[in-house]
Amino acid sequence: MALTLSLLDLVPLRTGQTSAQAVAASMQLVRRADELGVHRYWFAEHHNMPAIASSSPPVLIAAAASRTERVRLGSGGVMLPNHSPLIVAEQFSTLAALAPGRIDLGIGRAPGSDQVITQLLRQSGATSDVDRFPDNIKDIIALSHPDGANLRFASGGEYTVRATPVATSTPEVWLLGSSDYSARLAAQLGLPYVFANHFAGDHLDHAMSLYRTQYRPSAEHPEPKSFLTANAVVAPTHEEAFERALPHLRMMARMRSNKPLRAAETVDEVRANPSDEAERRIIDHQARNWFIGEPDDVAKRLRAFAAEHGVDEIMISAAAGQFESEPLDESTGRIQTVELLTAALRR
């Protein structure tokens, strides 16, 4: 089975690394992904998280666009309750002008952080009402269209609003989620849909079934269009792959245990401080939903996973940790994952 490979980047931050170094490492990765023929490269939106430096997808997409030529770039996703629909439409329409035909706008309904950060974002005034999420999606699509959106006043008259004055390229809008709600809404609006399997795989079958059975064709998308996300770590040996996966697995275990978050550990730190029994149980449970191992084995398992769920594209979060000896401004483990996996998928 031919399988299209895409990448999701949270811009991970490891011990001793600055945000500047983490961003530099991600820019190195997106350049390499472009050279290797990766289809899409999306940046996530998370706020005030010690191990994640991806808080502003539009800025990172613009930086990536200046360093690449072919790969589609997008958000995985913009957390819409944090932003005004007009601002989102303007940002991504501008990105579409910078990189015509290469911009995706993935939109999510979650805040991407905790309640304190949500309140701080709302103080800026440039946010949207989560209860109007479906209408805000429609507004963004209309505002991004070359014809713009027409506002009708109660007193009479209209006012046309466009995200950019003369648009020749518009972003492709995708709805992201891990619940029935997002699957139903994507089907209702005739939009492409991505199930966030990399952190919430329990409802995958149900959500995909809802999306496909309830899908209403739209002019842009007469057929359902979807792909899945997954965590993947690939190395020359299974032992190295699992070692590189442990820092991220342990960080996720800390989150699920409500322990204080910190920058991702290096592989060396994990070796020096083994997990206790409770943490190991969480790690083992999470690892079952990951794709960890040697190139051909992971490629085979990803193909089977895609075929099982009726998709021909998988977006991986290359969750490979770093050794202390590896440069702070490079993504050695993540680049190795992508290089080995793209080669294996071509065989």
Rank of each mutant, 00 (worst) to 15 (best):
P57I: 01
L121V: 10
D9W: 08
P295V: 09
S56D: 14
V166W: 12
A320P: 01
T170S: 11
A96E: 05
H145D: 15
A299L: 02
A232E: 01
E90Q: 14
T68F: 02
S169C: 05
V194Q: 06
E239N: 11
R132T: 13
I316Q: 01
P171D: 10
L120H: 09
A319C: 12
Q188Y: 09
V88I: 09
E90V: 01
F199D: 07
D268N: 05
W290D: 09
L5S: 08
Q21D: 15
S124G: 15
A343P: 01
E69R: 15
L151Y: 15
F305A: 08
S84M: 04
V194R: 05
T15N: 05
R303A: 05
D268K: 00
G148N: 08
V116L: 14
H39T: 12
H198S: 07
G106I: 03
P58R: 08
L328P: 01
F153C: 06
Y193A: 06
L5A: 09
P295I: 06
D296Y: 11
L261Y: 04
Y211S: 08
P260A: 01
A287I: 06
P295E: 05
S19W: 12
L60I: 04
T168Y: 13
H285G: 12
A187R: 11
P81G: 00
A53D: 02
W42I: 02
R67H: 09
R256F: 09
Y159M: 13
E339P: 00
M1L: 08
S84E: 04
E279M: 15
H238S: 11
A51W: 04
G16Y: 03
G177C: 12
G156R: 04
D268P: 03
T164M: 04
G293L: 07
S275H: 08
V298K: 03
L95T: 02
V298P: 11
N82I: 07
L13Y: 01
R31W: 03
L95F: 06
V161D: 07
V233Q: 06
A318G: 04
P224R: 04
F92P: 00
W174V: 06
D297S: 14
V233I: 15
Y159L: 13
L98W: 04
T337W: 02
M315C: 12
L204A: 10
G148F: 10
R244A: 04
E269I: 00
A2M: 09
E279S: 14
V298M: 11
P217M: 02
E330C: 04
V298Q: 07
A183W: 12
E158A: 07
Y193R: 07
E45A: 05
V116M: 10
D131S: 14
N136T: 05
A149F: 15
A167N: 12
H47A: 12
S128C: 10
Y181F: 12
V338M: 03
L120N: 11
A2V: 07
P192V: 02
A24F: 07
L3E: 04
Q188V: 06
V173P: 04
A62M: 11
S75M: 05
L29F: 11
V311C: 09
